[in-house]
Design a protein around this nucleic acid. Sequence first.
DNA 1: GTACGGCCCTGTTAGC
DNA 2: TGCTAACAGGGCCGTA
Length: 271
Amino acid sequence: MPELPEVETIRRQLEPQLLGAEIVNAGAFSSSRFTAAREAIGSEVLALHRRGKYLLVELTVAPPHELVVHLGMTGRLAVRHNHPNQLNHRHLRAWWYLSCGALLTFHDIRRFGRIHYVPQGNYETIPTLAAMGPEPWDAAFTAEALAKFVKRSNRHVKTLLLSQKPVAGIGNIYADEAFWLARINPATRTLSLKRAQRLVEGIRQALDSGLRYGGTTLRDYVDATNQSGTNQHELHCYGRAGTPCERCGHTLRRQVLDGRGTTWCPNCQPR
DNA sequence: GTACGGCCCTGTTAGC
DNA sequence: TGCTAACAGGGCCGTA
C-alpha cells in the first residue's frame, strides 16, 4: 500500500520521464474516481510534486491546473514505451498518451485510488489534502506541534496520525513502525512533550528507512519501473504479530484499533 | 466541530 | 475440489 516513501519513490522515477511531455490523449475507466484523467488532454507537464501520499502533476493550462493522483491501496503508475494491448488490461483505470509516443498508465486492482483535476493549489474538493499537516521533515512538524494537536483531541494518537492532519504521509505500516521505534503504545490518547519528541523521531526514522529501501512491498506495491521495494525486510513490528520483539523478546500482539490492524509490543510499548 | 461506523473494492486465504 | 466468508485498509460521508 503506497504511503509517503512509496509515492516519493514513484515521483522520483516518473519526473524525468514526464517533464515537458504534452498529454495528447487520455482515457479512463468509467468511474467518477478516475474520469478526471481526461481533463489533462492538451496540457504539458511542468513539474511533478508530492504532498503526503498524493502526487501532484503541475500542468500548463491557463489558468494553471493540477492532476492530483492518489494511489489508494493498490495503485500503480508506469510509463510504457512499447505498449501493444496495454489498454485491454483488466485493472487499467486511467491512461495518458504523451507527445513522445509513450503511454502513462494507472492500474488499480481494488479501485481505492482517485484522480482529481483542480485549479493549481485549490484543494477544496479534496478534504484530506486541503487539511493536510506538514511534511514529516518540515520544520513545522515539531514535538510541540504534535503534542498540542494530540491535546486538542480525545482520539487514539495512531488514528490522529492516519488522519494526515498532524503530519502528512503516514499510513498503517509506517505508523506501527514509528510507534515501535518510539516505544509508545499506539492506543494512547495523550503525549507528553518528551514522548511527542520520540514519536516525531520515530516517524522520521521509519519513513527514512522506507525511502532508503525503495518502499515496502507486502503484496501489491511496485514502483514505476515495476520493481518491488525491500523495506519489508527492515520492518520491526508491522506484520510480525506472534513473533518475538527484536528489542525485548516478548511476543508482538495484534488487535484492531479504530478499524485498522495494529501491531505492538506489550512489554516495551506499554499502555 | 468532533467522534465513529459504514462503505467502497477485489485478490487472497482459511475453513468447511 | 469447490464453494463461501473473512480479511486487508485510505479516504469519504452520514449520523449522533
